[in-house]
Structure formats: structure tokens, C-alpha cells
């Protein structure tokens, strides 16, 4: 297994074994920080009562999340041993590693699509995104390049003009600004 794969495998196993522990810790620490931060929220000079401020509700919410976080943390510690015995291993773990990497790539593709949407324009960015995903999601034997290209172009151009004409939404034109008007 490559180094990156073993790191991902560690993350997957860690998530499985210490699921509640990690979640509880994140919830507790995050809530504690935001609870403390709530004291810096500016409030009205003359509230009707001391509870009638913009601080009260956040303190209530984060105040409730903190004990929930602690309970999850405790439960996680109790259950860690059981979880260890059922943690994925072997082929299941390898499949998990592959799925993890593929998901990260798919997420990166969405992020790149959004990044390109303004400078490049919606139509080219959407076509590139769709084409990448269509090829990426299936096995080579299932590739249908012409169909993929036609669908990507029709959807991108169609969505642009439908939203512009009927919903009055002008999606970023980017490099096609001169052509699309």
C-alpha cells in the first residue's frame, strides 16, 4: 500500500473506531469556543430584560451542545473497544480507500467548476465539469464520448438560456461575454 493509501486507511479506521469520540470532542470544543465568543456579540443598550439580547439564544444553543458533546465523547470511549473489532480491514478497507480518493477528486472537480464559473464563464465551465464527471464516473467500456459531449453542451447552453430568458438570471458569461451579449 502506498504511503497516502495507508494514511487514508488510518483515517477510515480511526473514524470507525473513534467515531463518537471525535464527534463529541469536536462538538464540545467548537461549542465552547463559540459560547465564549457569544459574550462579544454587541447588544442593545436598553433591552427589555437581561435575556432579551442577541447573546441569549447562542448561549442556549452552544450551552446545550457542550454536554451533548461530552456525552458523545464518553459513549465513544465506552464503545471504542467494540468498534475496534468491527473496523474495516483487508478488501473492505481497500475499497474504502479507493472510494475516499474518488470522492475527494469528485469534490475537487466541483470546486474547480465553481472557481472557473466566473473567469471562464458558466457554459464552458459546466461543459468541462460534466464531461470530466461523465468519463470519471464509469468504466472505460461504458464511455460514450459523442453522447457525453452532446449532453454536456445541450445542458450547459440550455440551462444558460432558459435561466436567462425565463427566470431572469444571468449566469456568468466569462470568455463568451462578447458572443452571449
Amino acid at each position: 500500500m502506498k504511503k497516502i493509501d495507508s494514511v487514508i486507511a488510518g483515517i477510515i479506521r480511526g473514524f470507525h473506531i473513534y467515531n463518537d469520540t471525535i464527534l463529541g470532542a469536536i462538538l464540545f470544543i467548537g461549542s465552547l469556543i463559540l459560547f465564549i465568543q457569544s459574550f462579544s456579540i454587541s447588544i442593545m443598550k436598553n433591552p427589555v430584560s437581561s435575556l432579551d439580547t442577541a447573546r441569549f439564544f447562542p448561549q442556549l444553543v452552544f450551552g446545550a451542545l457542550m454536554p451533548i458533546g461530552i456525552l458523545l465523547l464518553i459513549r465513544g470511549i465506552i464503545r471504542a473497544k467494540d468498534q475496534k473489532s468491527s473496523a474495516p480491514e483487508g478488501e473492505k478497507l481497500e475499497t474504502g480507500v479507493v472510494a475516499f480518493k474518488r470522492s475527494v477528486i469528485a469534490l475537487a472537480a466541483i470546486a474547480i467548476f465553481l472557481l472557473l464559473m466566473e473567469p471562464l464563464g458558466f457554459i464552458p465551465a459546466a461543459i468541462l465539469y460534466m464531461l470530466f464527471n461523465m468519463f470519471y464516473m464509469c468504466e472505460r467500456a461504458a464511455w460514450k464520448p459523442w453522447l457525453f459531449v452532446i449532453v454536456a453542451v445541450v445542458v450547459a447552453v440550455g440551462a444558460y438560456f432558459i435561466f436567462r430568458q425565463f427566470i431572469y438570471v444571468r449566469l456568468p458569461a466569462g470568455i463568451l461575454k462578447g458572443v452571449l451579449g
Binding site: T95, V98, A99, F100, R102, S103, I105, A106, L107, N133, Y136, M137, C138, E139, A141, A142
Partner: peptide, 11 residues
């Protein structure tokens, strides 16, 4: 989408 992309779709 991310759930689907985890495994390549077989032909």
C-alpha cells in the same frame, strides 16, 4: 453524487 462516485459504474 459522492456516494455514487465512490465506485466506478460498471458497463
Amino acid at each position: 453524487i459522492l456516494k455514487t462516485v465512490g465506485k466506478k459504474i460498471s458497463a
